[in-house]
Design a protein around this nucleic acid. Structure first.
Lengths: 191, 191
DNA sequence: ACTAACGGAATGAACGTTCATTCCGTCAGA
DNA sequence: TCTGACGGAATGAACGTTCATTCCGTTAGT
């Protein structure tokens, strides 16, 4: 399929260890070992551990966005796009639990806060799909009259908690249940 | 008012450092310094750093619960109790941002997962106020027909995100906005 | 009333461990 | 033979924890 490059092996090893054990449980030596690589070799591809962590995050972010954008019904009504967005994200995370766990670790760390700040304040060069969705809905007066961060949290909050609970095995989210959940979020948002 | 005990000083110092900097940013030496205490002294009060962290969590948990239970309208209708619970929790966290940040750090760590498991599976000796609220609502058929963890996340998820955003200054939650938000959550939950 | 002995509380230098990073000898390909 | 990629031992900083020592309020003896 794809010839595994050294760089790729290192990223994959870091992903697995950090997702499963957190940043604590992923020392460079262990990442090297799992990647089948000398400890020093990592530094040929990543300047520091920090850079490795950040590049892995950006890598995953791109892959996730690409997945959601695939078959995105850009021309359909708002509600349909809202549903597509969340269903796709949910399914992706359930199919790639390591990606979710990594993103979670990343967000709950000093890295995460700076990123969140950019999202809230709407960094322009990063086309934030969900943010655009919300802003369009506000224009159409389809949503409750609440500040953007509140609307944002009404949708994101439950999703994130539920994906974690599913991955940890506390609840089984099948397609029907995901749809019902997205529906409930929509009820929270809609005017 | 209260004579500050050494134990209390240590807990307060740990709370501040961990809430502000995370577990990483709070080495024992630094906690000792801020508490105005020798490094070794901490070990007269807490067996290990682990124990210190856990006892601080339990201490905060108790204080928060006591605050919510104050003036809790136990005999009023479900909806009113739901509103009281979330309004009180919200106000408490906004008034005590360090407590919130500490709880967040704790939950996003190995400590947190075990705890969450107990909550979801319903450890009986810990009277979980919100869980009881949900279960009563299910009996009354006042809520959507969804599994408990889903209902749970529909309420908790947004609240947690919003309290963080408020503390980080991304949104200003005043009493009126909090009420509107709780209302939106209720819309997500109600049948 | 004064002092000397006592003992638990407190201290912080020192220890052992863990980690990110660097260094340098080795080896494969050109 | 020369070059640069590679591995893994070496390095030093940072951390949690320990322990020999100091400090100080209390007590017992005179």
């Amino acid at each position: 399929m794809k010839a595994p490059t050294k760089r790729g092996e290192i990223l994959q090893a870091a992903l697995e260890l950090i997702a499963e054990q957190g940043f604590h449980g992923a020392p460079m030596a262990m990442i090297a070992e799992r990647a089948g690589v000398g400890a020093g070799t990592i530094y040929r591809y990543f300047e520091t551990k920090d850079v490795l962590i950040r590049e892995l995050f950006e890598d995953l972010q791109e892959r996730i966005l690409a997945d959601i954008l695939e078959a995105f019904p850009a021309e359909r009504p708002l509600r349909e796009r809202f549903f597509h967005f969340w269903m796709a994200l949910f399914r992706y995370m359930i199919a790639h639990p390591l990606h979710f766990r990594y993103m979670e670790q990343y967000h709950n760390s000093p890295y995460g806060t700076a990123l969140h700040r950019e999202r809230i304040l709407g960094k322009p060069d990063n086309p934030d799909l969900f943010r655009e969705l919300i802003e369009e809905a506000i224009e159409q007066r389809a949503m409750k009259d609440l500040p953007v961060p509140v609307l944002f949290s009404l949708a994101c909050g439950p999703m994130i908690m539920l994906i974690r609970d599913h991955i940890l095995g506390f609840v089984r989210m099948d397609d029907a249940l995901i749809e019902k959940t997205v529906e409930a979020c929509w009820d929270a948002l809609k005017r």
